[in-house]
C-alpha cells in the first residue's frame, strides 16, 4: 500500500516541475508517467500512471493507447493494455507485461481531434 500511495502522490503532483517519475516532451504538452510497481520485472504485470501536462495552456490531447515492443526481436507484448481516463489529463494504463529481458520501446499514442501523435521511450529490463 505504501508503494501505491507514493505513486498516487507523485501522480497528483505530476505536472509540477520536480515530480518524481519520467517525463517526455511533446508539442505543446509534456507526458509524465510512472510505473506501478515502480520497478518493472520481466514477466510481471504492471500499470502506468500517466499525466498529460500543458506547456502553453492549450487544450490537452487524450491518451488513446499504450504499447510496447522489442524492435530488435520484432515482437510486441502478448497483452493489449487498456487505458482509462480518470480525470482531465490523468490516465491509468493496465495490463502491460514485458516477457523478455532487453530493450523495450514504450509507446504512447495521443489523439486530439483528427490528429494522432506518438511519444516513445526506451525501457531496459535486466
Amino acid at each position: 500500500m505504501a508503494a501505491m500511495a507514493s505513486v498516487d502522490d507523485a501522480w497528483s503532483q505530476s505536472c509540477q516541475k520536480n515530480a518524481p517519475g519520467q517525463r517526455l516532451v511533446g508539442n505543446p504538452f509534456q507526458l509524465w508517467f510512472q510505473t506501478d510497481p515502480k520497478k518493472i520485472r520481466v514477466g510481471e504485470f504492471f500499470k502506468l500512471h500517466v499525466s498529460i501536462c500543458s506547456i502553453d495552456g492549450s487544450t490537452l490531447p487524450k491518451l488513446l493507447k499504450v504499447n510496447a515492443g522489442m524492435p530488435t526481436h520484432g515482437h510486441g507484448m502478448n497483452y493489449r493494455p487498456t487505458v482509462e481516463n480518470l480525470a482531465p489529463g490523468k490516465f491509468l494504463a493496465k495490463g502491460l507485461m514485458m516477457h523478455m529481458a532487453g530493450k523495450w520501446l514504450l509507446r504512447f499514442e495521443f489523439g486530439q481531434g483528427d490528429k494522432v501523435t506518438h511519444l516513445q521511450t526506451t525501457v531496459t529490463l535486466k
Partner: peptide, 8 residues
Amino acid sequence: GIATQHVA
C-alpha cells in the same frame, strides 16, 4: 485474471 483480461 489480469492476464486473461488483456491477452491479445
